[in-house]
Design a protein around this nucleic acid. Structure first.
Lengths: 164, 164
DNA sequence: CTACATGCAAAATCTTTGCACCCCG
DNA sequence: CGGGGTGCAAAGATTTTGCATGTAG
């Protein structure tokens, strides 16, 4: 897992942010950033904690919470909240803005972007004299796989005429 | 506060939902529904609890949590979650679907609807074979009032040349 | 009379804080 | 060295659950 090379830039961004803000570089922050970068998708603090704590039992949850907050401030990470009460983090550096579709069945998170929606959104805000800072647009439903699975099960149910 | 008459229909909806589902009518549910209907905007459980508990000290938080869940199931209420970790409830009956703009300064919540955005959203979901069940689209920023206030303060700051 | 409803307190969850100790700059 | 960083345990905050008791149907 030496993803260090191709991610050099992210480490530089962190170091720059730290020194510019009178914060300090630490072995823990580096380790956490490394694992954050190596983990794909939309991880919770606990996802990250489990992976990191196995290899580095010295690093506690609190430090991960604090590191992720720093990463967000440094524009390396973005926090998103779905409907399960957990905060998830995703890569922000080299990852343009997007919104999410979340499968309520399997939890898969799809990303989408729509310049048209963003434009309409700006127009609406304008009409209200509202100054946009950020937004989130989340669509909940069933992904293609789960929709197919469901219709398959419906067919089976019909054949058996009834079920439970 | 006898808002009972013009809200009769909502009470009927509740009663119908209760009897259809083998649930029971109770004085508490009626009281909570009454106050829910009389409260405008986007209330938290605690907002409602404080109002109700003052007049009806016998009604506890738990009952309000449970009643609001029932109201949501009965399509009388809708739960929304912004970014402060609190669940808010709004009227759903006679209140068409809409999304929210939230002022990060004063907390004001504006509602908006955009058929165009909804249509684009459907098209995107379609393209992914995603079957939409619900969505939420929240825009965070500053409302007109707060934006004006801010630019006013900026002018003052400029005149004084510096500040803190 | 039975099953659902209620209310209190305790539990469960996720996240933040207090504090003693450690380490970077 | 000094001020931030870390880690543990404890505190916070919101929501849920267990359980004994009340009450609608």
């Amino acid at each position: 897992m030496t993803a260090g090379k191709e991610r050099r830039e992210e480490f530089d961004v962190l170091d720059e942010y730290l020194s510019k803000n009178g914060l300090k570089h630490s072995k823990q922050r580096e380790t956490i950033l490394q694992h954050f970068l190596e983990t794909s998708g939309h991880m919770t603090v606990d996802d990250l904690y489990r992976v990191i704590h196995r290899k580095h039992p010295g690093i506690g949850r609190t430090t991960i919470y604090r590191a992720l907050k720093v990463f967000c401030d440094a524009q390396l990470a973005d926090a998103i909240e779905l409907r399960d009460g957990l905060t998830r983090f995703e890569h922000k550096f080299r990852h343009a803005h997007h919104d999410h579709m979340i499968c309520v069945e399997c939890g898969t998170i799809l990303e989408f972007v729509s310049p048209d929606i963003e434009r309409l959104q700006d127009e609406i805000a304008d009409a209200y004299g509202f100054d946009i800072e950020s937004h989130r647009h989340q669509i909940f439903g069933r992904c293609q796989k789960c929709t197919r699975l469901q219709s398959l099960q419906n067919k089976k149910r019909k054949k058996k005429t009834s079920r439970a």
